[in-house]
Computed example of a mutant assay.
Amino acid sequence: MHQRRPLSGLSSVPLAYDEYIPPNGNVTDQPLVILHGFFGSKRNWQSLSKAFMRELQRPVYALDLRNHGSSPHSRPMTYLHMAADVLDFIRTLSLSNVSLLGHSMGGKVAMTLALHPETPADILTKVVVSDIAPVRAKVSEDTVLHIKGMETIERNGIATRKEADEILEGYEKDPLVRAFLLTNLDTNSRSAALKFKIPIDILKEGRSEIESFPWAPGERSFHGNTLFVKGTKSKYINRGNVPIIKQFFPEATVTELDAGHWIHAEKPNEFKKLVTDYILHAGT
Protein backbone atom coordinates (compact mmCIF):
# COMPACT_ATOMS: atom_id res chain seq x y z
CA MET A 1 0.00 0.00 0.00
CA HIS A 2 1.19 3.55 -0.74
CA GLN A 3 0.03 7.04 0.19
CA ARG A 4 0.86 10.39 -1.39
CA ARG A 5 0.69 14.04 -0.37
CA PRO A 6 3.42 16.69 -0.76
CA LEU A 7 4.88 18.37 2.35
CA SER A 8 5.70 22.08 2.27
CA GLY A 9 9.34 22.87 1.60
CA LEU A 10 10.62 19.31 1.12
CA SER A 11 9.83 16.78 -1.59
CA SER A 12 8.32 13.77 0.15
CA VAL A 13 7.73 10.32 -1.29
CA PRO A 14 4.79 7.97 -0.65
CA LEU A 15 5.98 5.30 1.76
CA ALA A 16 5.01 1.65 1.42
CA TYR A 17 3.58 0.21 4.61
CA ASP A 18 2.00 -2.83 6.24
CA GLU A 19 -0.93 -2.29 8.56
CA TYR A 20 -2.07 -4.41 11.50
CA ILE A 21 -5.55 -3.41 12.63
CA PRO A 22 -7.00 -4.60 15.97
CA PRO A 23 -10.40 -6.35 16.16
CA ASN A 24 -12.05 -3.13 17.38
CA GLY A 25 -11.45 -1.63 13.93
CA ASN A 26 -9.50 1.40 15.18
CA VAL A 27 -7.23 2.62 12.39
CA THR A 28 -6.23 6.14 13.49
CA ASP A 29 -6.11 6.61 17.29
CA GLN A 30 -2.95 5.90 19.33
CA PRO A 31 -1.20 3.87 16.60
CA LEU A 32 2.31 2.51 16.81
CA VAL A 33 4.39 3.48 13.76
CA ILE A 34 7.60 1.46 13.23
CA LEU A 35 10.70 2.62 11.32
CA HIS A 36 13.41 0.09 10.37
CA GLY A 37 17.17 0.62 10.17
CA PHE A 38 19.69 0.93 7.32
CA PHE A 39 19.31 -1.96 4.81
CA GLY A 40 16.15 -3.02 6.68
CA SER A 41 12.48 -3.04 5.70
CA LYS A 42 9.00 -3.43 7.13
CA ARG A 43 9.35 -7.17 6.49
CA ASN A 44 11.85 -7.40 9.35
CA TRP A 45 9.10 -6.29 11.75
CA GLN A 46 6.21 -8.56 10.69
CA SER A 47 6.15 -10.84 13.75
CA LEU A 48 6.68 -8.03 16.25
CA SER A 49 4.11 -5.81 14.51
CA LYS A 50 1.46 -8.51 14.92
CA ALA A 51 2.48 -9.03 18.55
CA PHE A 52 2.38 -5.29 19.30
CA MET A 53 -1.10 -5.05 17.79
CA ARG A 54 -2.35 -7.94 19.96
CA GLU A 55 -0.74 -6.61 23.15
CA LEU A 56 -1.67 -2.95 22.66
CA GLN A 57 -5.03 -3.48 20.92
CA ARG A 58 -4.06 -0.52 18.75
CA PRO A 59 -3.25 -0.18 15.05
CA VAL A 60 0.36 -0.81 14.08
CA TYR A 61 1.95 0.53 10.89
CA ALA A 62 5.37 -0.72 9.74
CA LEU A 63 6.87 1.54 7.08
CA ASP A 64 9.51 1.17 4.39
CA LEU A 65 11.63 4.33 4.47
CA ARG A 66 12.71 5.88 1.16
CA ASN A 67 15.22 3.78 -0.81
CA HIS A 68 14.29 0.69 1.22
CA GLY A 69 11.86 -2.18 0.77
CA SER A 70 8.98 -1.32 -1.57
CA SER A 71 9.18 2.45 -1.15
CA PRO A 72 10.34 4.73 -3.98
CA HIS A 73 14.00 5.36 -4.74
CA SER A 74 14.67 9.06 -4.28
CA ARG A 75 17.43 11.55 -3.61
CA PRO A 76 18.39 13.09 -1.28
CA MET A 77 18.80 10.52 1.48
CA THR A 78 18.65 12.92 4.45
CA TYR A 79 17.03 12.67 7.85
CA LEU A 80 14.98 15.80 7.18
CA HIS A 81 13.55 14.28 3.99
CA MET A 82 12.89 10.93 5.66
CA ALA A 83 11.17 12.69 8.57
CA ALA A 84 9.08 14.66 6.06
CA ASP A 85 8.06 11.37 4.43
CA VAL A 86 6.91 9.98 7.79
CA LEU A 87 5.05 13.15 8.77
CA ASP A 88 3.34 13.08 5.37
CA PHE A 89 2.33 9.46 6.04
CA ILE A 90 0.91 10.32 9.49
CA ARG A 91 -1.07 13.27 8.14
CA THR A 92 -2.42 11.42 5.11
CA LEU A 93 -3.77 8.58 7.23
CA SER A 94 -5.10 11.11 9.81
CA LEU A 95 -3.24 9.37 12.62
CA SER A 96 -3.37 10.95 16.09
CA ASN A 97 -1.55 10.39 19.39
CA VAL A 98 1.17 8.41 17.61
CA SER A 99 3.79 6.27 19.35
CA LEU A 100 6.83 6.24 17.06
CA LEU A 101 9.38 3.41 17.28
CA GLY A 102 12.62 3.53 15.31
CA HIS A 103 15.66 1.24 15.21
CA SER A 104 19.12 2.59 14.31
CA MET A 105 18.67 4.81 11.21
CA GLY A 106 14.92 4.63 11.82
CA GLY A 107 15.59 5.82 15.37
CA LYS A 108 17.34 8.88 14.00
CA VAL A 109 14.39 9.50 11.69
CA ALA A 110 12.04 9.24 14.69
CA MET A 111 14.19 11.68 16.69
CA THR A 112 14.38 14.09 13.74
CA LEU A 113 10.59 14.11 13.44
CA ALA A 114 10.13 14.60 17.19
CA LEU A 115 12.58 17.52 17.19
CA HIS A 116 11.42 19.06 13.91
CA PRO A 117 9.90 22.55 14.32
CA GLU A 118 7.15 21.75 11.77
CA THR A 119 5.92 18.66 13.62
CA PRO A 120 2.65 19.57 15.39
CA ALA A 121 3.01 19.18 19.15
CA ASP A 122 -0.06 16.95 19.46
CA ILE A 123 0.91 14.34 16.82
CA LEU A 124 3.55 12.37 18.78
CA THR A 125 2.78 11.20 22.30
CA LYS A 126 5.65 8.73 22.75
CA VAL A 127 8.96 8.07 20.99
CA VAL A 128 10.95 4.84 21.37
CA VAL A 129 14.51 4.78 20.00
CA SER A 130 16.28 1.44 19.68
CA ASP A 131 20.08 1.47 19.96
CA ILE A 132 21.07 4.77 18.41
CA ALA A 133 21.93 8.21 19.83
CA PRO A 134 21.31 11.73 18.44
CA VAL A 135 24.96 12.21 17.55
CA ARG A 136 27.13 12.79 14.51
CA ALA A 137 29.35 9.73 14.31
CA LYS A 138 31.04 7.55 11.72
CA VAL A 139 29.11 4.55 10.47
CA SER A 140 30.78 1.30 11.47
CA GLU A 141 33.33 -0.18 9.07
CA ASP A 142 30.93 -3.11 8.75
CA THR A 143 28.48 -0.90 6.83
CA VAL A 144 31.20 0.15 4.39
CA LEU A 145 32.09 -3.50 3.80
CA HIS A 146 28.43 -4.45 3.34
CA ILE A 147 28.04 -1.85 0.59
CA LYS A 148 31.20 -3.12 -1.13
CA GLY A 149 29.93 -6.69 -0.92
CA MET A 150 26.57 -5.77 -2.41
CA GLU A 151 28.27 -3.84 -5.22
CA THR A 152 30.41 -6.90 -5.96
CA ILE A 153 27.32 -9.14 -6.13
CA GLU A 154 25.67 -6.83 -8.67
CA ARG A 155 28.88 -6.50 -10.72
CA ASN A 156 29.43 -10.25 -10.95
CA GLY A 157 26.09 -11.02 -12.57
CA ILE A 158 25.39 -14.02 -10.35
CA ALA A 159 22.17 -16.03 -10.70
CA THR A 160 21.52 -17.62 -7.28
CA ARG A 161 21.16 -16.51 -3.68
CA LYS A 162 23.77 -19.13 -2.72
CA GLU A 163 26.34 -17.45 -4.98
CA ALA A 164 25.41 -14.08 -3.52
CA ASP A 165 25.93 -15.42 0.00
CA GLU A 166 29.34 -16.85 -0.96
CA ILE A 167 30.46 -13.45 -2.28
CA LEU A 168 29.09 -11.64 0.75
CA GLU A 169 30.94 -14.00 3.10
CA GLY A 170 34.13 -12.25 2.01
CA TYR A 171 32.78 -9.05 3.55
CA GLU A 172 30.65 -10.33 6.45
CA LYS A 173 31.34 -13.52 8.43
CA ASP A 174 28.10 -13.59 10.46
CA PRO A 175 25.55 -15.73 8.55
CA LEU A 176 22.62 -14.00 10.28
CA VAL A 177 23.80 -10.57 9.14
CA ARG A 178 24.34 -11.92 5.61
CA ALA A 179 20.82 -13.35 5.60
CA PHE A 180 19.48 -9.95 6.72
CA LEU A 181 21.34 -8.13 3.93
CA LEU A 182 20.23 -10.66 1.32
CA THR A 183 16.56 -10.04 2.12
CA ASN A 184 17.13 -7.04 -0.16
CA LEU A 185 17.79 -9.23 -3.23
CA ASP A 186 15.14 -8.90 -5.93
CA THR A 187 14.37 -12.57 -6.46
CA ASN A 188 11.27 -11.81 -8.57
CA SER A 189 13.18 -10.04 -11.32
CA ARG A 190 13.15 -11.65 -14.78
CA SER A 191 16.74 -10.57 -15.28
CA ALA A 192 19.27 -13.40 -15.48
CA ALA A 193 21.56 -11.60 -13.01
CA LEU A 194 20.40 -10.92 -9.46
CA LYS A 195 20.08 -7.29 -8.40
CA PHE A 196 19.13 -5.61 -5.16
CA LYS A 197 15.74 -3.94 -4.69
CA ILE A 198 17.46 -1.09 -2.89
CA PRO A 199 19.51 1.51 -4.80
CA ILE A 200 23.06 0.77 -3.63
CA ASP A 201 24.37 3.92 -5.35
CA ILE A 202 21.97 6.24 -3.48
CA LEU A 203 22.63 4.52 -0.15
CA LYS A 204 26.38 4.76 -0.72
CA GLU A 205 26.01 8.48 -1.58
CA GLY A 206 23.87 9.06 1.49
CA ARG A 207 26.19 7.35 3.95
CA SER A 208 27.65 10.61 5.25
CA GLU A 209 24.11 11.87 5.89
CA ILE A 210 23.21 8.65 7.70
CA GLU A 211 26.26 9.15 9.93
CA SER A 212 25.12 12.69 10.71
CA PHE A 213 22.22 14.28 12.61
CA PRO A 214 20.40 17.51 11.74
CA TRP A 215 21.02 19.34 15.01
CA ALA A 216 23.72 19.87 17.61
CA PRO A 217 22.89 19.61 21.32
CA GLY A 218 21.06 22.69 22.55
CA GLU A 219 19.51 23.57 19.18
CA ARG A 220 16.26 21.62 19.59
CA SER A 221 14.47 19.67 22.33
CA PHE A 222 11.47 17.36 22.64
CA HIS A 223 9.76 17.26 26.03
CA GLY A 224 7.46 14.31 25.38
CA ASN A 225 7.79 10.76 26.69
CA THR A 226 10.90 9.16 25.16
CA LEU A 227 12.46 5.75 25.74
CA PHE A 228 15.96 4.81 24.57
CA VAL A 229 16.78 1.09 24.52
CA LYS A 230 20.48 0.23 24.43
CA GLY A 231 21.92 -3.18 23.58
CA THR A 232 24.49 -3.92 26.26
CA LYS A 233 26.82 -5.50 23.67
CA SER A 234 26.43 -2.60 21.21
CA LYS A 235 28.52 0.58 20.97
CA TYR A 236 25.85 2.67 19.23
CA ILE A 237 24.88 4.24 22.57
CA ASN A 238 27.73 4.80 25.03
CA ARG A 239 27.99 6.54 28.40
CA GLY A 240 29.14 9.76 26.77
CA ASN A 241 25.95 9.86 24.71
CA VAL A 242 23.56 9.87 27.68
CA PRO A 243 24.04 13.58 28.58
CA ILE A 244 23.53 14.44 24.89
CA ILE A 245 20.33 12.36 24.81
CA LYS A 246 19.10 14.28 27.87
CA GLN A 247 19.83 17.63 26.20
CA PHE A 248 17.67 16.74 23.23
CA PHE A 249 15.10 14.71 25.19
CA PRO A 250 14.90 15.99 28.80
CA GLU A 251 12.21 13.43 29.75
CA ALA A 252 14.11 10.47 28.27
CA THR A 253 14.42 7.13 30.02
CA VAL A 254 17.49 5.10 28.99
CA THR A 255 17.34 1.36 29.61
CA GLU A 256 19.30 -1.70 28.49
CA LEU A 257 18.66 -5.20 27.22
CA ASP A 258 21.31 -7.92 27.01
CA ALA A 259 21.78 -7.88 23.23
CA GLY A 260 23.78 -6.44 20.37
CA HIS A 261 22.61 -3.80 17.91
CA TRP A 262 19.61 -5.76 16.57
CA ILE A 263 17.85 -5.90 19.95
CA HIS A 264 14.40 -6.60 18.52
CA ALA A 265 15.70 -9.63 16.60
CA GLU A 266 17.91 -10.99 19.39
CA LYS A 267 15.49 -10.48 22.29
CA PRO A 268 12.05 -10.13 20.69
CA ASN A 269 9.96 -11.08 23.73
CA GLU A 270 11.88 -8.87 26.15
CA PHE A 271 11.87 -6.01 23.66
CA LYS A 272 8.13 -6.41 23.04
CA LYS A 273 7.37 -6.32 26.79
CA LEU A 274 9.61 -3.32 27.41
CA VAL A 275 8.11 -1.27 24.56
CA THR A 276 4.52 -2.34 25.27
CA ASP A 277 4.77 -1.49 28.97
CA TYR A 278 6.27 1.88 28.14
CA ILE A 279 3.61 2.79 25.58
CA LEU A 280 0.79 1.74 27.88
CA HIS A 281 2.07 3.25 31.12
CA ALA A 282 4.57 6.09 30.49
CA GLY A 283 3.20 9.44 31.55
CA THR A 284 0.25 7.93 33.45
Rank of each mutant, 00 (worst) to 15 (best):
Glu166Pro: 00
Pro117Thr: 00
Ser140Pro: 01
Pro134Met: 05
Ile153Arg: 09
Asp165Thr: 04
Thr183Tyr: 03
Gly149Met: 04
Leu185Ser: 07
Gly157Asp: 09
Ala193Gln: 13
Arg178Tyr: 03
Glu118Phe: 03
Tyr171Thr: 06
Ala164Gly: 12
Val144Cys: 00
Leu182Arg: 10
His146Thr: 06
Leu115Val: 03
Thr143Arg: 04
Pro134Cys: 06
Ile153Thr: 09
Glu141Trp: 02
Lys138Arg: 13
Thr183His: 12
Ala137Cys: 07
Glu163Gln: 15
Arg178Thr: 01
Ser130Gln: 12
Lys173Gln: 10
Glu166Lys: 15
Asn156Phe: 00
Glu151Arg: 15
Leu181Trp: 09
Met150His: 04
Asp142Ala: 13
Asp174Leu: 04
Tyr171Pro: 15
Ser140Met: 06
Gly170Met: 02
Ser130His: 01
Gly149Ala: 02
Glu163Trp: 08
Lys148Val: 05
Lys148Gly: 05
Ser191Val: 01
Leu168Gly: 04
Pro175His: 03
His146Ile: 06
Asp186Tyr: 05
Val129Gln: 01
Ala192Gln: 13
Glu163Asp: 14
Ala193Tyr: 10
Leu168Trp: 04
Leu145Met: 14
Thr160His: 11
Thr160Gln: 10
Arg136Leu: 03
Ala121Ile: 06
Ile132Cys: 07
Thr187Asn: 08
Ala164His: 11
Ala192Arg: 14
Asp165Asn: 14
Pro134Leu: 01
Pro117Trp: 00
Ile147His: 08
Val177Lys: 11
Asn184Met: 03
Val127Tyr: 03
Val135Glu: 05
Val177His: 01
Ala179Asn: 13
Ala193Phe: 11
Asn184Thr: 03
Pro117Gly: 04
Thr152Ile: 02
Asp165Arg: 10
Thr187Arg: 13
Asn184Lys: 06
Ser191Met: 07
Gly170Lys: 08
Leu145Tyr: 09
Ser130Glu: 15
Arg190Lys: 11
Asp142Glu: 11
Asp186Gln: 01
Tyr171His: 15
Ala192Ser: 13
Ile132Met: 14
Leu145Cys: 07
Glu163Val: 02
Asp131Val: 02
Met150Lys: 07
Arg136Lys: 14
Ser191Ala: 15
Ala137Glu: 13
Glu169Asp: 01
Val139Gly: 08
Ile153Asn: 11
Ser189Gly: 02
Pro134Tyr: 04
Val135Asp: 05
Val135Asn: 06
Glu154Met: 11
Arg178Asp: 01
Glu172Val: 12
Lys173Ser: 12
Lys138Trp: 00
Leu124Ala: 04
Thr187Ile: 15
Ile158Asp: 07
Glu172Asp: 05
Arg155Phe: 01
Ala133Gly: 11
Ile167Pro: 11
Ile153Tyr: 12
Ala193Met: 09
Ala179His: 09
Ala137Gly: 08
Asp165His: 02
Val144Leu: 14
Asn184Gln: 05
Glu141Val: 08
